[in-house]
Design a protein around this nucleic acid. Structure first.
Length: 576
RNA sequence: GCCCCCAUAGCUCAGAGGAUAGAGCGUUGCCCUCCGGAGGCAAAGGCGCAGGUUCGAUUCCUGCUGGGGGCACCA
């Protein structure tokens, strides 16, 4: 059995205050009332203790003043080695001060936990799946997609830290018209590569993928196959392009240390017949009808030109609050993407996960709601699905927005971005914002002034710790039985910040807000650097016993920074 | 027209209904030259507007203003 010597401090402090109030209730000092909402938080100011609980909301239930309630809580507070002192303060706070001995003892816990530091139990025994990226395999990974990639992978890492068994999945959208267009575009490039001039017909002109990467594929193909494929139709080209695209996307993701466990092919939903089963099921429940136009449409008065056309198959999404019904099968007999999407989500639910996370771009939100309606129509448990909407990324160059279009090929890819900055910088910059705010990615800043990026400030903390140990080794200094009582207030101050990692992981994982770890990392670095500056280890005026304790401390600090950087998918450089 | 997101320091952004709203960058002034220099300290500077709920609102609700995105028989 694994032991968990490191505790989430907010949990522990909340527990103590609740137990105190419960004891007071048992003793008849205050009436019985629900204590669930009693929570402690890290205090903002040192004079307000290390953690505090606001009891004002409970004064009414307790039928005494908030301050009296706080005083009673202090009076009945159970003994705990983590707390040295507690005080009641107006208007009704209980301020808790961490024991310094206990703080020091956490250093040993950090060494024990090491790379598993703050692996929590909240997800223990539960399976979670994070679906992210899921970009169409028609072009290299676009920078707009990379935000979801980073957010999704970091979310997965945080869920792992919270104790979940996590699976990363990529929904590989390899069916439908777009893939046909991709195959056809490659066919045309292939013919060009063989020296033929190809005139595009009108329909091709609109759907042609112009990116440079298809020329590259075509050249390889021409070298490999010669003119053997000149009379082939789009299908062989499609298969070839898909395979190449798949490899390319995986290679790109690999550069930012993102690895999916499963690539789920949309095609398989066609091959297994799953989409038709879903259609039948929806039909059986009365949510499907055939018509030339929607029976319910919003006020906009669209669909004018649809009169007299062949009938499509519609889903009554308006029953679930949608402004209009949506097409599941086109009049051509070909499904829209909605039908396989619903089938895919049904499949994920059928696989028995406790938690499903979907990382989606804001432009897919409406579509997701249709899918969710579909899941509800199938009477499946949609509450297991949590969506992280990432707002769009605006790329700024020279203070102006860069236009992004994957059709025209003037995009900025994730590969470009990594080339021009670094994998670490890309991960940090895309992570360090709340997902539901728009993100301005200043390309100039990211390219030319990497020193201004906080990513280096954070990594530098790790580098500095490593530097001390390099020097210590060079001088033949080794840690042996350090006396932790020789550590001073600056070191304990840093430790207090370290202990907030637990609640950061807990909150990130339970609220699906991975950006919190990025801000925590910066705060931790902020707490670290001033201390590093003042707390010398190997300087000549430092007592050897003190040096031992400090070396032990910086070793722990390095473990913490390594853990935090790993949680963000970043590297842990030893030198910079 | 309808739906979603956003509005906090000069800029980019944090902020789980609680005490005196925080970082980074930029600006200004200062410190150290060491086991580290991509270093440290300090200052100036802020919750779009109007209501509501609450003991208490940057946080929740409504409206307004401003910005972004979406509302296909495209994916």
């Amino acid at each position: 059995m694994r032991r968990y010597p490191v505790i989430v401090v907010t949990r522990e402090m909340s527990r103590l205050v609740r137990e105190a109030l419960q004891a007071a209730q048992t003793a008849g000092k205050i009436p019985e009332f629900d204590l669930d909402g009693v929570d402690a938080r890290a205090s903002k100011r040192a004079e307000q203790g290390d953690y505090s609980a606001a009891l004002m909301p409970f004064a009414r239930s307790a039928r005494i003043s908030p301050l009296q309630l706080a005083q009673i809580a202090v009076e009945y507070l159970p003994e705990a080695e983590s707390v040295s002192r507690a005080e009641a303060v107006a208007p009704g706070y209980v301020n808790l001060f961490l024991s310094e001995d206990w703080l020091r003892s956490q250093l040993e816990a950090i060494y024990t936990e090491a790379d598993d530091l703050y692996r929590l139990q909240i997800g223990q025994g539960k399976r979670a799946q994070v679906e992210f990226v899921s970009a169409n395999p028609t072009a290299p990974l676009h920078i707009g997609r990379s935000r979801g990639a980073v957010v999704g992978d970091t979310m997965a890492r945080l869920l792992e830290a919270a104790g979940y068994d996590v699976q990363r999945e990529y929904y590989f959208n390899n069916a439908g018209a777009q893939m046909r267009n991709l195959g056809n575009s490659l066919r045309i490039r292939y013919l060009e590569a063989l020296g033929q001039t190809v005139d595009l017909i009108d329909s091709e002109r609109e759907t042609f993928y112009q990116g440079e990467y298809l020329r590259d594929f075509a050249h390889e193909l021409a070298l490999e196959k010669g003119d053997a494929w000149v009379n082939e139709d789009y299908q062989v080209f499609k298969a070839y392009a898909e395979q190449k695209m798949f490899e390319m996307i995986k290679a790109t993701l690999n550069r930012v240390d993102i690895h999916h466990d499963i690539f789920f092919n949309e095609n398989s939903l066609y091959e297994s017949g799953a989409i038709w089963e879903v259609l039948e099921e929806l039909d059986r429940r009365g949510y499907v009808y055939k018509a030339a136009k929607s029976a319910v449409s919003d006020q906009q008065g669209d669909d004018e030109e649809s009169g007299g056309k062949a009938e499509a198959t519609w889903f009554r999404s308006s029953n679930f609050g949608d402004s209009k019904d949506r097409v599941l099968v086109k009049s051509s007999g070909e499904p829209t993407y909605t039908l396989p999407d619903i089938a895919y989500h049904k499949d994920k639910l059928d696989r028995g996960f406790d938690l499903l996370i979907n990382v989606l771009g804001a432009d897919h939100y409406t579509q997701y709601q249709v899918v969710r309606s579909g899941i509800q129509a199938l009477e499946m448990d949609a509450s297991k699905i949590h969506v992280i909407i990432v707002q769009l990324v605006a790329i700024l160059r020279g203070g102006e927005a860069v236009r992004m279009s994957s059709r025209k090929g003037d995009f900025e890819t994730l590969d470009d971005l990594i080339d021009q900055t670094s994998a670490d910088a890309v991960r940090y910059m895309l992570l360090a914002r709340s997902s539901d705010t728009h993100l301005n990615f200043d390309l100039d800043l990211a390219i030319k002034k990497s020193t201004e990026n906080p990513v280096y400030y954070i990594q530098y903390a790790h580098v500095r710790c490593a530097g001390i140990f390099r020097e210590a080794v060079a001088r033949g200094v080794r840690v042996q039985n350090p006396d932790l009582n020789l550590l001073g207030e600056p070191e304990l101050k840093f430790l207090r910040k370290v202990l907030e990692l637990g609640e950061t992981i807990e909150l990130s994982a339970s609220a699906f807000e991975p950006h919190r770890i990025a801000f925590y990392a910066l705060e931790l670095a902020n707490a670290f650097h001033p201390i590093f500056d003042n707390v010398r280890v190997l300087a000549s005026d430092v007592d050897p016993a003190v040096a031992q304790a400090r070396l032990y401390f910086f070793g722990a600090a390095q473990i913490v920074f390594r853990r935090v950087l790993h949680l963000m998918g970043m590297t842990t450089p030893e030198v910079m």
